[in-house]
């Protein structure tokens, strides 16, 4: 927690992220907090534990575009970390703009399109307990950006957000995936995919049977209507197995 003082009566109050105005609890003065020349350190706490992150991974891996059986992939390691980004609030031609810049160069998937995941931001100071998570240190200084940003400064901060990096092995190959430790969003650039071929093949067979049944039933012989029933059965039974196995 950061403590500030009322400029009128000197009484202390606690600053919280996002606060711009504060009414002094003692003298009632409305206090304006000028953040244009300071840098704030914020941190978003983890809302998922490692076990939950693993289960989020398994849910993601069971998705329809992922290879069948990926949800049972062997997990090699789970790394829990706080990842830093800079956020600048600038006033450009009377408009307020948010600019997000990398604080750390990284090859992690999904981290190149920068964003701050949703979360309940806290002040990050030496009293904040980061637990067993590694705090990734920025390798780019804020000054490197400050001089080149348009407009005038309104706010600048460094935000550490919670992240899990899961390394997993599938068919002898290693992959990695990132999970936002706050909302559970999954980022991945490369993963084993599932083929649509068996799905499409079955669907087309069932469709063609029904089509041939209807067209033939009207134009050639009523007996051919049975093909429609065959299409339904093939689609239903085959579809169930394909959805389960492929």
């Amino acid at each position: 927690m950061v403590t500030m003082n009322c400029p009128k009566c000197g009484a202390p109050f606690e600053y919280e992220p996002g606060m711009r105005f504060k009414k002094c609890d003692y003298c009632g003065t409305m206090i304006y907090i000028d953040k244009s020349r300071v840098m704030f350190y914020y941190i978003i706490p983890f809302s998922l534990n490692s076990q939950q992150a693993t289960e989020v991974f398994r849910r993601w891996a069971a998705g329809s575009t992922k290879a069948k059986g990926l949800d049972a992939a062997q997990i090699k390691s789970i790394k829990k970390m706080y990842f830093p980004v800079y956020r600048f609030v600038r006033r450009i031609n009377g408009r307020e703009e948010d600019v997000i810049k990398p604080a750390k160069t990284t090859l992690l998937p999904g981290m190149s399109n920068l964003k701050i995941p949703p979360g309940d931001m806290r002040i990050f100071d030496d009293k904040y307990d980061t637990g067993d998570a590694e705090v990734i240190q920025p390798d780019t200084s804020m000054d490197a950006y400050l001089g080149n940003l348009p407009g005038e400064a309104k706010e600048q901060e460094i935000v550490y957000f919670p992240l899990y990096e899961i390394r997993y092995v599938f068919n002898g190959q290693e992959y990695n995936v990132l999970i936002d430790g706050s909302s559970g969003e999954v980022f991945s650039s490369y993963y084993p995919t599932r083929s649509s071929a068996p799905y499409l093949l079955l669907a087309v067979i069932a469709f063609v049977l029904a089509m041939a049944g209807a067209a033939g039933g009207v134009m050639i012989s009523g007996v051919l209507w049975f093909l429609v029933l065959a299409g339904f059965l093939v689609g239903g039974i085959g579809g169930y197995f394909i959805a389960k196995k492929f």
């Binding site: 209807a214 339904f232 689609g235």
Partner: peptide, 10 residues
């Protein structure tokens, strides 16, 4: 898929 391909096919 059974319903959809049958109805669609018909």
């Amino acid at each position: 898929i059974a319903t959809g391909s049958t109805v669609g096919g018909v």
